[in-house]
Design a protein around this nucleic acid. Structure first.
Lengths: 223, 223
DNA sequence: TCAATAGTGTCTGTCAGACATTATTAC
DNA sequence: GTAATAATGTCTGACAGACACTATTGA
């Protein structure tokens, strides 16, 4: 148990997803003090008797609290100080997670996906952490396959472009996007097609490798 | 004091500098257990009764242990787990610091600047932390003024180019470097010149702003 | 045929890399 | 003048952005 001489060690996660064409973050309703009943980022204490490291801790918590598994996860930054948590001098190792919208099983009242443009005031420094997470996504998204983590295993180029546009918050020219993405060799043609309503079917691709970076950048043109 | 139920909270710093044209890291000789007498990264416990946050903690330690102040400092990543420190489940919030070589007052026997290509085997996971720090510098250096932190306040373009080349580990074409750097408006002409031995004097510049990023990249041509 | 979306062709401006050239100092 | 380094000029290939164009489906 924490005491006056040691820091409280916690982990938090900014779980981002795309739903209804908007970038959203997973918030959960805190069941215990402090800030009981407030919406906040999912997180909790590191358990030194069972967690292999901070990433294991946040994976355990996301699985228990939100039923989320198998998502893309990377460390974001660590927030610390005497005042950010009323329980005492605390450390939060914050993580960024990306997950396809459909994969989240939201338990109404306990959890919610909230648009990042429509956030309530959040306890701790969770507002700042979310801001940093979105900045990381937008900074890294332009030269990596990070935004593809919002998609399922298979997707069309139009779907991929849409995920990039929502993730980056900018419009992208479809010709440039296709040319770039196809020339990079990061996609594998599945040989299948998918058709929506009343239009030409689109080829279905999947990522050749999990998540990687490329040297060239995607566009920055404003919408 | 740490006990079996809480994590040990520490901070470490990878202090990089350029000396003799090589990228070097500051190591200090551990005066206490564990690994007493081994060379390791400077670091220590967070003191919840005096530190405002992790960055304050590492600044305090660098000042006390190595007499280093006023350096560029950013958070790198946080390393954690039950096995990385023999004293128990530990957290280390690692930082990346850049400092001009001349600014370091090295106390022989207690501290040393060691070339990153010639590192001894280090305790804890300090080898991995240094590797990550250099990767961060090389990744971020190509599109930011980070490597300028290795220089003093005033410098010539040739000195700046040399700092970039050492920091990035690549050669850069001087014409391209000058064109890019001058067109970005990140430098202010001091109006002064500096002359070495037997050659044309070079204009002296300083950074217009502290440390910033730019959208375009510097070259990646191999040396 | 039309509507709608998927996908291609091509022009143009920007810019990094390469490298030749000129400028300024000490001797 | 030479040697050495600072600084500039210029050509070229790569590529992003723009946008016109063609292709494939259902109705």
């Amino acid at each position: 148990m924490p005491n006056e001489m040691t820091a409280i060690s916690t982990v938090d996660a900014v779980v981002l997803s795309i739903l209804e064409g908007e970038l959203k973050v997973l918030l959960h309703c805190r069941p215990v003090q402090p800030y009981e009943g407030s919406w906040a980022l999912p997180g909790g204490f590191i358990r030194v008797d069972e967690d292999a490291d901070a990433e294991s801790a946040i994976r355990r918590i996301l699985k228990d609290k939100a039923g989320v598994t198998g998502l893309y996860l990377e460390q974001l930054a660590t927030y610390s100080g005497p005042d950010r948590d009323p329980r005492g001098w605390s450390i939060s190792i914050a993580h960024l997670a990306l997950v396809p919208g459909a994969k989240l099983a939201i338990d109404e009242g306990k959890a919610a996906l909230v648009s990042i443009d429509d956030l309530p005031k959040l306890p701790f420094d969770h507002g700042k952490i979310i801001k940093d997470a979105v900045a990381r996504l937008r900074g890294k998204g332009a030269y990596s396959t990070l935004p593809a983590s919002f998609l399922g295993k298979n997707f069309t180029l139009t779907e991929m472009q849409s995920a990039y546009e929502t993730a980056l918050g900018t419009r992208v020219d479809s010709s440039s996007f296709r040319r770039k993405v196809l020339s990079l060799g990061i996609l594998t043609d599945t040989g299948r097609s998918r058709q929506g309503d009343n239009r030409r079917p689109a080829k279905v691709y999947r990522l050749t490798k999990a998540v990687g970076t490329f040297d060239r950048t995607l566009g920055h043109s404003a919408g």
